[in-house]
């Protein structure tokens, strides 16, 4: 066994790598396809990229992008995440009433298409309740009448038609719908956290609410963030449904309007597509930062942490 001399022992490995002919073939095919696309972009005047660029910078389009698409996405995601976390936590509560309410919420808002919801909120709600009286009790008007009071116990009256086709209604509607999806995501995230974490916090004397906020949710975020990024990107595109409220300060409606006016349909689609892609790219960058932040302490340490570790020196 140990008769081999040091000279005979194999030295460092200098092997040829595994050949990957498939990669080169794929690269060639893709290069040809890309060249064909490029040539069609350049030679087919109907693409009319200069006009598409003009549409992208057209004032009403930019206005729609900002006030409809971007503000709509941010607003509805903020509401959606807030509702989602609350409903998700309720779903896991020991209180059966809260569990039931959260189940009904998810069932209802996950079941309605957003397009239909926009229609209901934009026109239906204002038809049913042109004025929304908010009083301290149910049936407060009837109650006041029965008691012979002069006032009607109403504290506050909301004029629904005043904002039924504004971005506020759109954000509320999309946020309510998003809340149902986010609730499922939050619930899955919370369930992914080791129950030992909850017990460790409880053993330290932490109350259940604080345990949820400080220990469980931050760890659940690691699981919650990636699908939330997906949801946000889906929401960017779903803001085009705002036009069903109807709300016309919104990217797709505005580019479309230019298209129908100028009969340059395809370039306006290109303009809309370009804007949607730009927003989604920005969001993806943001998502990757969030994932790094909430992934701290899990899996492989970041480069910076690794450097710090080697500097401290491996004790043990």
């Amino acid at each position: 066994m140990s008769t081999t001399s040091t000279q005979d022992r194999p030295g460092p490995i200098k092997a040829r790598p595994v050949p990957h002919p498939g990669r080169w073939v794929a690269l060639a095919v893709i290069a040809v396809v890309a060249a064909m696309m490029l040539s069609s972009f350049l030679t087919n005047p109907r693409w009319n990229f200069p006009f598409a660029l003009q549409v992208m910078n057209y004032k009403p389009v930019l206005n729609g992008l900002l006030k409809g698409t971007i503000i709509g996405t941010v607003g509805s995601m903020v509401i959606g995440i807030a509702i989602g976390v609350i409903v998700g936590v309720m779903r896991l509560s020991t209180n059966p009433v809260l569990r039931g309410v959260s189940f009904l919420y998810t069932w209802f808002f996950r079941g309605i298409p957003r397009l239909v919801l926009m229609g209901i909120l934009g026109s239906g709600l204002g038809f049913l309740y042109p004025k929304f009286d908010i009083g301290p009790l149910p049936f407060s008007q009837q109650l006041a009448h029965a008691l012979g009071l002069h006032g009607d116990l109403t504290i506050f009256t909301l004029n629904v038609n005043q904002f039924s086709s504004t971005i506020i209604m759109g954000i509320v509607g999309l946020g309510l719908s998003e809340g149902a999806y986010m609730a499922e995501i939050a619930r899955a995230g919370i369930l992914s956290v080791d129950p030992g974490q909850n017990e460790a916090a409880q053993a330290l004397g932490m109350a259940p609410g604080k345990t949820m906020r400080r220990i469980v949710l931050p760890q659940a975020m690691r699981v919650i963030v990636p699908p939330t990024g997906n949801e946000t990107i889906a929401m960017v595109k779903d803001t085009s449904l705002l036009s069903a409220l109807p709300l016309i300060t919104e990217l797709y409606f505005q580019t479309n309007a230019v298209g129908t006016r100028t009969l340059q349909i395809m370039p306006t689609y290109v303009a809309a597509t370009a804007w949607y892609l730009i927003i989604c790219s920005v969001l993806m960058v943001g998502q990757s930062y969030l994932e790094k932040y909430f992934g701290r302490g899990f899996g492989a340490p970041s480069k910076k942490a690794q450097q710090k570790l080697t500097k401290i020196g491996a004790d043990h």
């Binding site: 030992g196 974490q197 460790a200 004397g205 109350a207 259940p208 760890q219 302490g297």
Partner: peptide, 21 residues
């Protein structure tokens, strides 16, 4: 929870909070 403050517990699987140093 308040009663537990005076009682420390160590678990078989440590259960440290992984997102904290």
């Amino acid at each position: 929870a308040a009663q537990r403050r005076d009682i420390g517990m160590c678990f078989q699987r440590f259960n440290l909070f992984p997102h904290k140093t």
